[in-house]
């Protein structure tokens, strides 16, 4: 069996484990970034955004497009951040603000529609070929070349960490950040106390889109993008947020890194064709675990 022999490789050459672990952590940092954005809109606005992954892919295409036109894709990170910010604002003002007080399935389906539009537009514009934004960095090699770390991945990791730190500082210290956290705790009370919740929602959604855009630009450099990969990123974000809980920032980061590592090991053992199946498998697993926990702590009815 192919699977058994793959496991065998991992046992006999432990250094491969290290390679997969590092690779997983580096990619996982970007997953965590997108998931943090989802946790934000989920926690603050109670919107489950199924277009999350498509925002990511959009950011990826921006970086790739710049790269194709002679601009280094690293500049794509701030550019994607800004463009997606505006895009998020537009989506909020046209669609999301109308579904925000409806039932959850409404926002889920509306964002599913948005996801479909984005992915199909990208497909029309850039065809369905997979693309990578070439950042032109070298790799470091360790253990006689058994372990390689692409410099660009490390750079992406640092970028993701910096961006996350920036957003967290912003949420802690700025007035808008405080307003967002207040709204997340109790929207009605926040409204009574004079916070413009509509503005808060709009800002949160735009910020989420911008974070996704930046994450996507990083993804385009370290991995491959394709118009229809968005749904996988959306599901990843869901798995991470569901596993961690949306109020739990260290949890989201840990789950994001864990997700990256699990996918690397799963992909190595089962083969690359199972990439998406692994993500979906993790989704089902997380939901089952969550359900078992819930049935133990039955919700109290007041």
């Amino acid at each position: 069996m192919q699977i058994l022999s793959n496991i065998n490789i991992l046992i006999e050459a432990p250094v491969f484990n290290l390679a997969l672990l590092i690779e997983g952590l580096l990619i996982g940092s970007v997953f965590a970034l997108a998931a943090y954005g989802l946790a934000l809109v989920w926690g603050v606005m109670n919107v489950k955004n199924l277009a999350q992954g498509d925002f990511v892919i959009m950011g990826g295409y921006i970086a790739w497009y710049l790269g194709e036109h002679g601009i280094h894709p690293l500049f794509g990170v701030p550019v994607a951040f800004l463009i997606l910010w505006c895009f998020g604002w537009l989506i909020y003002r046209t669609i999301i603000y109308r579904v925000i007080d409806k039932d959850l399935f409404t926002s889920l389906l509306a964002t599913f529609g948005i996801a479909l539009v984005i992915s199909q537009l990208l497909n029309l514009l850039f065809s369905s070929d997979t693309q990578t934004a070439d950042a032109g960095f070298e790799s470091w090699f360790f253990f006689d070349g058994m372990v390689s770390i692409a410099q660009v991945k490390l750079i992406a990791f640092v970028c993701a960490a910096l961006l996350a730190a920036g957003v967290i500082t912003f949420m802690k210290n700025s007035r808008m950040g405080q307003a967002i956290r207040a709204t997340a705790q109790d929207a009605r009370a926040a409204k009574v106390l004079g916070i413009d919740t509509d503005k808060v929602y709009c800002f949160t959604f735009s910020l989420n889109a911008a974070i996704c855009g930046a994450a996507g630009a990083l993804i385009a450099m370290i991995w491959v993008i394709q118009p229809f990969y968005g749904i996988t990123f959306s599901i990843r974000s869901f798995v991470i947020v569901t596993a961690a809980g949306f109020g739990n920032l260290p949890g989201v980061i840990a789950a994001g890194l864990g997700m990256g590592v699990l996918e690397q090991f799963g992909g190595f053992i089962l083969g690359a064709t199972f990439q998406q199946a692994i993500v979906v498998g993790l989704l089902v697993l997380v939901l089952v675990v969550r359900q078992m926990q819930q049935s133990r702590h039955r919700q109290v009815v007041q």
Partner: peptide, 8 residues
């Protein structure tokens, strides 16, 4: 694209 827009 039209289908997605229709959903929305």
């Amino acid at each position: 694209v039209a289908l997605g827009a229709l959903i929305v």
